[in-house]
């Protein structure tokens, strides 16, 4: 079973794959928008925090989507 961090990455990757037909950049933007609309602040905060963690295994597109998130209030 996945850890909670792995689950966040997995979920983001799944969203990306479902937007992939739109093209890479569009898919990243659509994923970031989806996360903004539907992920709770602690999930978004964790996603942003993972960007700075050397051990975090983030696929390239997931990293780009997380990087497009704003820090929630």
């Amino acid at each position: 079973m996945m850890s909670n961090d792995q689950r966040l990455v997995h979920m983001a990757g799944q969203i990306l794959r479902n937007f992939a037909a739109q093209g890479r950049e569009e898919a990243i933007a659509a994923t970031a928008e989806h996360l903004t609309l539907f992920w709770a602040p602690r999930m978004k905060a964790r996603a942003i925090a993972m960007l700075e963690e050397p051990g975090a295994e983030l696929p390239e597109e997931v990293r780009a989507a997380f990087a497009a998130l704003r820090h929630p209030a």
Partner: peptide, 19 residues
Amino acid sequence: DPEPGLRIPNMLDAATDGA
């Protein structure tokens, strides 16, 4: 709160995280 909340599976994940 203008931010979306946790879905049920997210609540359970957050619980195991202690949050």
